[in-house]
Amino acid sequence: MNNRFIKIIFAIVIGLWSATLLSQGEGIFDEYRDMLGDDNPAIFVIFDGEEIWYAPAGPKSASLEQCDLGLGPGVVEGAYAQLPRYFADVDRVQDIEARLEHCMIQLQGLAPDEVSAKPYSLRGDLGTQLEALVAWIADQSSGLAIAPGQAHAQEKSAYALGETLFYYRAGTHDFSCATCHEQAGRRIRLQALPNLTTHEGAAAAYSTWPAYRISQGIVRTMGWRMRDCMRQQRMPELTMGSEASVALQTYLAVNGAGASMTAPGLKR
């Protein structure tokens, strides 16, 4: 039995299981999490991500081993926890997704359009390369404190922009991130909503992404979470690694700074 076959079986079992769980509310997810303990289906995705990192790819047939995630070329351990941060070579603040995109283009010679064509899985997919890479890289920061860059002027302005965007109301429904995430102890339907303007709320959210979504059977990244929140706000599609996506993640990371990374998390 190969790895892919095991994954498909796993996805089917989890899929059927989660369909039952979804009809029973939030409490049952806690039970499910307790039952799994330290076991997280994301482990398969993490293995994939590591393989992808070391595999030669693209026109230059190069691996990502020389990719600098902020701690020097090839240093993956602890890299996720200090993102988003300023990168002098591109003169801008990047999150893990923008940085990986940059490395794929520079090191592997891939076309920008090719890299950004489909960063995130659609429902029913078995995961993208980006999702696998992010899962592995985040896992390499597990247990380390969230410590995004805030020394550079651009890092500071990314935070300020993120905060402004957090409160920006627009669209048919007048929603902003703050509509759902500015108060503690609230929920939408049965889903509990963290107050992302506080350290506790931001830390609880930021430290657990990327996450294995039980209801979707795949690992989702923080960039995907930003995009999907925008979809729910009735906004157009948020571009992976864009200035707004990076700024919002900077706002959350800085608010949650100091807490330990526990990603990939396990979520409904």
């Binding site: 920006y168 627009a170 925008m230 906004m235 157009p236 599609e237 707004a244």
Partner: peptide, 23 residues
Amino acid sequence: EVYEVLLDSMVDKNFVTVERLKQ
């Protein structure tokens, strides 16, 4: 300024256009 950032960061998707970003 924020509107410009959003325009640069988002794209039309299906029937939802960046027109919605204008406050």
